[in-house]
Write a protein that binds this DNA or RNA. Structure first.
Length: 667
DNA sequence: CTAGGGTTAG
């Protein structure tokens, strides 16, 4: 198999290389990051050391000596000019640390905040963390310091670092400050870490945060961006109402967007009306979210009415509103009306980019009007409409759906020569086209491209590749790809596993097939019952009897009698002798009557290996209790070889069995 | 010198 992979010119490195590369390229540690990490380490130590000292300084009942020392400090810091000079020194110094050592003591928290802000405005990204760490170490910072730091460091910080900064805040008042909490949560949402932000929010509340509407609108915005965000959004709304916070227009905007992106037009309508009942006037964003909610089901009557309402409320439909309306018509299958609206958009100058064309093309293609879709695409290109590649993506996917793989491939090539912008979806789309067209060379180039751009393959990428490799009969490659996929945390679909399992069985890659079976079995989904029997046959063909036993033991109820019988025979014949009795008991335990042939086979195995006589005796002693008797020919076989086991013992056991069975058989 | 949001295409 590996040979054929090489034979058709697959650069072996690529497919097996892309995975480790992707997993290791997670966070490129910049100079900034690593220095911030180092500083955070030292800060932790010194913070602990300082805590006691600070607590003392803040204590009202200070010893008189300390109090006078503070008075002296206050007197000194009152000198505005001195502080001003110190600020200048710190701001202009080329060696920030030594400047802070010299002048820092004179500066108040608000002076330091001003410097922080100054550095922020100048985008001095090395100085900001340096100053901030100094402020932390010298306990000269407040809420504003943290918020400024988060604001100016923005995307330079990673999620873990941000959570760490927050967790290391000792001062309860700062930690529970709603502005700071909102700022942190907003940072996490920007980083698309919705789950982390929700968990942190929970912890913040437990620690004493009193959230406000801003907190909720921040989190609601996050729920729009994740799948299955709708239930979480509802929880947030409930939580907010429970706290008797009133919903403002921002909250309404957020929840309407959530409804729209989760195809909940009735719920969207509800919030829209509730908003008006609350005395708030919907703006274009509110209208456009509701319109978008209507577009999912193509409800153009409601959409038209909404546009009329909007106009009578004095709002003018903008480009987004009209583009969304176009989407409603498209989804509603009103292609003539869509066409007209597109013309109107053009005349308004709202069709300068590809979006409305994309909506229409996609709708036509999905309605099976591939030719019309292509006409729109050509028209769009002729008009020189700006495109980022969405139009290509739509058409390539559409061609693939219609099994027009040559056309798909040509368009993918066209995209590559025209654009130099790739993202995951585009790469998957092209990969799909090349795979379906059987363009191995292009498939590999696309993977290489993905690798170079450090774009991690997604569930779809893996599926496309596994299907393709299977189609090309490169089953082991498909298998390795599936293992890779699984190790990346993706659970492959059952049908794909099932067919790969069969293919691997066919090429006698029995243990690989079993591995695929286990991927399915230990995945979360419930699997098709027939697969147990399917893998059983494969394992038996590969003489993997121990694995076969595991399958039978766990899934006997889903395996047919003939298959169980086939397993039993195979195991008795050549399974591990130490497990023969266990297998017998298991078979019996799951309702499979053991016939004399099986017993005879087991006995023959023990005769071949007399050192296992204890197991034979055990079996013979077990049988009568379950209603089994040794048939005459097996009995003769045992007697003939009884010298191997001890004549006396065998005679006893057999006669004992005879008595028991007689007792059972007599009425 | 301190916090939030919402609209369109693959």
């Amino acid at each position: 198999m590996e040979m054929s992979v090489l034979g058709i010119g697959l650069p072996q490195g690529i497919v097996f290389r892309y995975s480790p590369l992707f997993s290791s390229s997670s966070s490129s540690s910049s100079v900034l990051n690593s220095s911030a990490t180092r500083n955070a380490g030292s800060q932790r130590v010194s913070t602990t050391a300082l805590t006691g000292e600070i607590a003392q300084t803040n204590d009202a009942q200070l010893p008189s000596g300390s109090r006078s020392r503070i008075k002296v400090q206050n007197r000194a810091s009152k000198s505005h000019n001195t502080r001003q000079a110190a600020m200048m020194e710190v701001q202009q110094s080329s060696d920030l640390d030594s400047a802070l050592t010299r002048a820092g003591e004179m500066l108040k928290v608000r002076d330091l905040n001003a410097i922080l802000h100054h550095f922020g405005k100048l985008n001095r990204l090395q100085d900001i963390p340096q100053l901030f760490v100094w402020m932390q170490e010298n306990r000269k910072l407040d809420v504003t310091s943290y918020i400024s730091y988060i604001k100016f460091m923005g995307n330079k910080l990673d999620t873990a670092k941000m959570v760490e900064i927050y967790n290391n805040i000792q001062d309860e008042a700062i930690k529970n400050n709603v502005y700071l909490c909102n700022s942190i949560l907003s940072f996490l949402i920007r980083k698309r870490k919705f789950d982390i932000s929700i968990k942190l929010f929970q912890k913040m509340k437990e620690d004493g945060l009193i959230p406000d509407v801003v907190t909720y609108s921040t989190l609601l915005a996050g729920s729009t961006k994740v799948k299955d965000g709708y239930p979480k959004a509802l929880e947030l709304i409930q939580d907010l109402q429970h706290r008797r916070l009133h919903m403002d227009d921002v909250i309404y905007g957020a929840i309407l967007a959530v409804c729209a992106s989760n195809s909940k037009w009735e719920e969207a309508e509800f919030y829209f009306n509730q908003m008006k009942d609350d005395g708030l006037s919907p703006n274009v964003y509110h209208y456009s979210s509701l319109l978008n909610a209507y577009s999912v089901c193509g409800n153009y009557q409601k959409a038209d009415k909404l546009i009329r309402d909007m106009k009578s409320a004095g709002l003018v439909p903008n480009k987004v509103i009209l583009t969304t309306l176009l989407k409603v018509y498209v989804r509603g299958g009103l292609f003539d009306k869509s066409r007209e609206l597109l013309t109107e958009l053009e005349s308004l100058g709202y069709a300068e980019d590809e979006m409305p064309y994309c909506s229409l093309m996609d709708g036509l293609a999905k309605a099976g009007q591939m030719h019309e879709a292509k006409l729109i695409f050509d028209e769009m290109r002729k008009k020189g409409v700006k495109s980022d590649g969405f139009a290509h993506s739509i058409m390539i996917s559409a061609f693939c759906r219609s099994k027009l793989f040559e056309e798909a491939k040509l368009l993918a090539n066209d995209f590559e020569t025209t654009y130099n912008k790739y993202d995951l979806v585009m790469l998957n789309t092209m990969l799909c086209a090349y795979c379906r067209a059987g363009e191995m060379e292009s498939v590999m180039q696309t993977l290489k491209k993905m690798d170079g751009l450090a774009i991690s393959p997604s569930y779809n990428t893996f599926h496309i590749l596994i299907r393709y490799f299977s189609k090309e009969k490169m089953y082991l490659l498909a298998y390795r790809t599936m293992k890779d996929m699984h190790s990346k945390g993706h659970q492959p679909a059952e049908e794909l596993c099932s067919s790969l399992m069969s293919d691997l069985g066919m090429i006698k890659a029995h243990s690989e097939a079993f591995s695929v079976y286990n991927i399915l079995k230990y995945g979360k989904r419930t699997m098709c019952k027939a697969l147990h029997e399917k893998i059983l046959h494969i394992l038996l063909a590969g003489q993997l009897l121990k694995d076969a036993y595991v399958v039978v033991k766990d899934n006997a109820a889903f395996i047919s009698r003939p298959a169980i019988k086939k397993f039993a025979t195979a195991f008795m014949k050549s399974g591990n002798i130490n497990m023969i009795n266990d297998v017998m008991k298991t078979l019996h335990g799951c309702g499979h009557k053991i016939d004399k042939d099986l017993f005879q086979m087991a006995v023959s195995r023990y005769i071949d290996q007399p050192e296992k006589k204890a197991l034979l005796l055990q079996l013979l002693q077990w049988m009568p209790g379950q209603g089994y008797v040794v048939d005459s020919s097996t009995r003769n076989l045992i007697l003939k070889n009884s010298h191997l086991f001890g004549r006396q013992l065998i005679a006893e056991v057999l006669s004992n069995q005879h008595i028991k069975s007689k007792a059972q058989n007599s009425p």
